[in-house]
Computed example of a mutant assay.
Amino acid sequence: MTLVVAASNVLVQHPVEAFGLADKLTWGAFSYPLAFLVTDLTNRRFGPKIARRVVLVGFALAVLLSLALATPRIALASGTAFLVGQLLDVSVFARLRRLAWWRAPLVASLAGSAIDTALFFSLAFAGDAEMSTTVGLLGGVADAPLWVNLAAFDFIVKVFGAFVLLAPYAALMRVVRPFETPRPSR
């Protein structure tokens, strides 16, 4: 978890130069969805209480490591977004865990990604002169600051990642047995 977040904090500082995507996407969008997979598998196996602990430990370690690898603003924005997004993921997953196998990880990841993206990009880049230059939002639908365009494309990649990561989640379901609430003894 810590490595995924720290790597994402470094990668978000590097735009994808290929195919003219430099003002649309950073490499961090591709690594971060793995954090939701880790959280969801932890929640499946150990339940929400332990998943929250993993999130808290991951948060603390990721912020410390990110302070060494990224700017302080990115590290703090990432920590805040990570904490809120992952805790939302844990709560949504716990509520949906008894439904069809794919609903809990998909809906939890989408909800967590939406909050994470909005918080991270606004805290990390809003007001930054370089990141506030105006570009065509989503390729020209409207004009918006660069950071808003990056956030929109980042979220699109995270949505795609949430669907793609259902395959490894499904494959790991056989290995990661579900958490069962202990029943009181009689």
Rank of each mutant, 00 (worst) to 15 (best):
L87M: 15
L99P: 01
H14C: 00
G28E: 08
V141I: 15
F120H: 00
A142F: 12
F155H: 10
L96V: 05
F30C: 00
A142W: 07
V16G: 03
G140Y: 08
M173S: 14
G140P: 06
D154V: 10
D89K: 07
V57H: 12
F82R: 04
G85P: 06
G127V: 13
V92F: 09
A104L: 06
A35G: 03
F93D: 09
T42W: 09
P15M: 03
L96Y: 05
W147P: 01
R44M: 10
A111G: 05
M173V: 09
R97Q: 13
A51Q: 09
T71C: 02
P72V: 09
L166S: 05
P105I: 07
R53M: 13
I50K: 11
A75G: 01
E130R: 14
A126D: 14
L3F: 15
L76G: 01
A124D: 01
F36R: 09
A6V: 15
L166M: 11
V176W: 12
R73K: 12
Q13V: 07
A144M: 06
L67N: 06
A118M: 14
L172N: 02
D89H: 06
D40G: 02
M131R: 15
L165I: 01
W101T: 09
V38L: 09
I156Q: 08
V175S: 09
T80I: 15
D23I: 11
P105G: 11
P168R: 09
W101A: 01
Y169V: 12
V175I: 14
A142D: 09
M173Y: 06
T39V: 05
